[in-house]
């Protein structure tokens, strides 16, 4: 039997991994993958709490929210990748550090 808290731990780890990925990796595509990781961590937490609520009976609310998040993540990825393509066409690179035409 897997303890309910184990799901939360995995979720938190995934979230931390995603956040670190965005902060450390300088490639735009890797950054996007890391953002997806963060969204999936939130989904895992939603599902864990839906299946094993702190009180009361399991509810479907968390599962329903997960579906919405999956759809939003797909939309975000499509817009994001379109932007990456636009940047790649004009600059020839997707390294975030190479983007310096706007002053810091």
């Amino acid at each position: 039997m897997i303890l309910p808290s184990a799901y939360l731990v995995v979720g938190a780890l995934l979230f931390g991994l995603g956040l670190c990925g965005v902060l450390v990796r300088r490639n735009a595509l890797t950054a996007f993958m890391s953002v997806e990781l963060m969204l999936n961590a939130a989904n895992l937490t939603f599902l864990a709490f839906a299946r094993h609520p702190l009180r009361g009976a399991p509810s479907l609310d968390g599962s329903a929210i997960a579906f919405f998040v999956i759809a939003v993540a797909a939309a975000e990825a499509s817009v994001g990748l379109a932007v990456v393509i636009a940047v790649f066409r004009s600059r020839g690179t997707v390294e975030i550090d190479a983007l310096r035409s706007l002053r810091h």
């Binding site: 932007v83 940047v87 066409r89 004009s90 983007l99 706007l102």
Partner: peptide, 8 residues
């Protein structure tokens, strides 16, 4: 394009 990428 660069602004957009940072925003995303």
């Amino acid at each position: 394009a660069e602004a957009s990428l940072k925003y995303v």
